[in-house]
Nucleic acid binder design. Sequence first.
RNA 1: UGCCUGAUUGUGUAACGGUAGCACGACUGUUUUUGGUGCAGUUUGUCUUGGUUCGAAUCCAGGUCAGGCAACCA
Length: 551
Amino acid sequence: MSEEKSLNFIEEIISQDLASGKYASILTRFPPEPNGYLHIGHAKSICLNFGLAQHFGGKTNLRFDDTNPAKEDIEYVDSIKEDVKWLGFEWAKECYASDYFDQLYAYAVQLIEKGLAYVDDSTAEEIAQQKGTPTIPGTGNAFRNRSIAENLALFADMKAGKFADGEKVLRAKIDLASPNMHMRDPLLYRIKRAHHHRTGNQWCIYPMYDFAHGQSDSIENITHSICTLEFIPHRALYDWCIEQLGIYPSHQYEFARLNMTYTVMSKRKLLQLVEEAHVESWDDPRMPTISGMRRRGYTPESIRDFCDRIGIAKRENIIDLSLLEFCVREHLNKIAQRRMVVTNPIQLIITNYDKGEEVLHSENNPEDPNGGSREVPFSNELWIEREDFMEVPTKKYFRLGPGLSVRLKSAYIITCDSFEKDAEGNITKVFASYHPDSKSGQDTSGIHVKGTLHWVSAKHAIPVVLNEYDRLFSVEDLSTAEGDFKDYINPNSLHKVKAYAEPALANDSLDARFQFLRKGYFYQDAKSTKDHLVFNRTVTLKDTWAKEQKK
RNA sequence: UGCCUGAUUGUGUAACGGUAGCACGACUGUUUUUGGUGCAGUUUGUCUUGGUUCGAAUCCAGGUCAGGCAACCA
């Protein structure tokens, strides 16, 4: 293989654990709560967890952290499974925290029996108040001293549904003065009458995250439980539960979550964008969701490559969107079928072309010698881009203008002779003559031109619609922007454009990736039909001319 | 005011007491029937003050800055 890539801190830990014989093999898990769609931040975690297992010869479970029925739904479970598969990963077991509800309940009873948990009748407000603040120790209440027998009975009654929602909770008895707020007698169970998407109405008490997650890891024999930085203060509790219960010691490790420029990465905010119709749906191609990116035309390979490149560390980060764009372009350049599409057309008449029409050939992908070619009809009446003609060309402009010559891609070199304008001064027609001996592939004209234009034969063109996407937000770093994040939504994140496409596109497979020459990479939209072809722009091509013009 | 993390070029990420490297971005040049791609090159960095050491991004002490922690959310 190639030279060794340095290990990130988690790989470092794992290789030591393996070398020391602490574990014979590793087992990781990806544990989403099914309360929303997965986004590119989850992709980082998925690639990490599954990637670790692949790299070190272990396995990964997919576990749904479904301990809060009020927010969760089967719809999300299904989408999550689809997204993980699409990214190219296979889980060893499909698990649910709800599968462990009986076991978890038994664990809670064990804690009570050890005098390490108690039923508290206080209200949420009272409990919050009694917890104190980070600088002021908490104070206990009378419930803390209930007898084991009483706690056992009360907890059984909680389970049996003898109390109303919120009337009682089960708490761990740890340390109300702990400098770690999470150790100040954290809640273990709450009463909540809600329909659970898997257990139905079987339960009216549900374990809290802190009482479910570590134990679920332990039950599955997860060796390395990897989560994001905000769970660092939970680790003490994670370890406490495992130790007091005397169960398999899974260990938690934390890394920094992904942030990206020009977008948001929280399920809550993404949900808001959907619910308030700032975007069409969870899979709107502007969304940073996996489903949105898939619909936009991102490939799983490019997303995995991206996750590889951003690395894993503990420091807060914000990744440039341009890195993601680089990754897709790099992959798409290798696999995309080249096609010609004109979006803002002006008519080009080739005055000396008297053959009527002919069929030319153009390569599907210059990067792929085996990519073959396609037929492209040519005639004396073409569409070219309006911006490819300039009445008074500027100095570095090497496209079409009066007296200037360019090549029509895969066709002939032409020279512009004249043009027409309407009353308002808009160019309506451009007239040119072609050089018959300059035909693509058999050019003997000796003419050298700097520009090559894409084009479409007017009478052969088929109408298509292009969705040209731009960034969802107008500021780079939403986390430092003041006020509501929605104030920064880019009002021009979508341009729907009508365009003329070469006929080959009508017969192309729905699943193909395209590069529309000089315009960008496109992918057929989920709602596109034969009669109404719609393409989503995945990403533009790099455009050094646009950059030059800005100067 | 407490506790916990962290700080390396514009952005990420390496260097595990011994040459601060890589990628993206930006900028040059070159190739090109896509102003794409490819190729070659340039560019900017160890938060700060002390200390240990022949030698510190790395170890120690203090400071600064940033983020997290007081949901019957995960």
